[in-house]
């Protein structure tokens, strides 16, 4: 019996775990190794890439863009997701599963396609904002103006991932025992009081989890930006991921790009660990 169990462990744990490690942990380590070379593994230069990176103004700029992008998107997704979930659980709302299904649709659309669809939507001539001309308002230059472009790509990411926050909050709120909510209604609690006194304390952990996952993901956002602005105009929407991509596969400096993505990874691990600690401290 003991023997069978150790065979089973090899078969069910050791083998599949080895495959997972070969396909994901090994490349990660290899990437660190690549970052010690110049170009495509041309010359070993030690930590030189990192030395240049911390002085590279474009890289510093990419960090700034990435942090701005992450801050705007994560906070919007959390707030809007919470609002939608709160609205949908109100007593007497009809067609809950219909609204839910509708809201979740963006989750399955390929991110690159979301970027492309918004590029069409943002078009100054045949996009919907061209209607603003008729009421005497000049429509914003969604993707042409550098400041606006960053907001525009944020909107794409918000469109894509607010449903994720909504889904988790909605499931979380519905898991609150019905008696607690009903008791609050009987006590005459207003909608706002119900939100602050009952719902928020119950889903506090879920809020942190949403913030954690969205932060880690949005921090490396790539597809939707590639599909809409490709990092432009200028460098106004060049996030970490776009910058590292261009370094690696436009300038073919794989070593430098690997170093950049390593720093990106370290920053996201730091953010992740900090948030996880917050989640589990409680």
């Amino acid at each position: 019996m003991a023997k069978e169990s150790s065979y089973l462990k090899i078969f069910f744990i050791f083998l599949p775990l080895s495959i997972l490690f070969i396909v994901s942990v090994f490349p990660l380590g290899y990437s660190l190794y690549i970052s010690l070379f110049r170009g495509v593994m041309e010359k070993f230069i030690g930590l030189e890439n990192y030395y240049y990176l911390v002085q590279d103004p474009r890289f510093i700029d990419a960090i700034r863009v990435t942090l701005t992008f992450t801050a705007i998107t994560v906070s919007s997704q959390t707030i809007i997701g919470l609002l939608l979930a709160f609205v949908l659980i109100q007593p007497g709302v009809r067609g809950r599963s219909f609204w839910q299904t509708l809201f979740l649709l963006p989750l399955v659309i390929p991110p690159i396609v979301a970027g492309v669809m918004f590029k069409i939507l943002y078009h100054p001539a045949f996009g919907p904002s061209s209607y603003l001309n008729f009421i005497g308002i000049k429509p914003p230059l969604w993707l042409e103006d550098p400041t606006m472009a960053l907001i525009s790509v944020c909107i794409i990411n918000i469109w894509m991932w607010t449903p994720f926050a909504f889904l988790i909050f909605y499931s979380g709120i519905r898991a609150i025992p019905q008696e607690i909510l009903e008791a609050a209604i009987v006590d005459g609690a207003s909608g706002f009081r119900m939100l602050t006194d009952i719902i928020l304390p119950h889903i506090k952990a879920l809020i942190l989890v949403v913030v954690l996952f969205r932060t880690l993901d949005n921090f490396t956002a790539f597809d939707e930006i590639m599909g809409s602005t490709a990092g432009g105009p200028g460098f106004s929407t060049t996030t970490f991921a776009i910058y590292a991509y261009k370094l690696a596969f436009k300038s073919w400096d794989l070593g430098y790009a690997a170093a950049a993505s390593t720093i990106m990874f370290l920053i996201s691990v730091t953010i992740g660990v900090t948030l996880v600690k917050m989640v589990y401290r409680r």
């Binding site: 775990l17 994901s24 490349p27 990660l28 921090f219 970490f240 990106m264």
Partner: peptide, 21 residues
């Protein structure tokens, strides 16, 4: 946690080594 962490590696850090491999 180990398994979930593997999903957390950003694709961009993996694509460079995979290109060479």
């Amino acid at each position: 946690i180990l398994v979930v962490m593997c999903r957390m590696f950003p694709p961009l850090i993996m694509v460079i080594p995979y290109y060479i491999i």
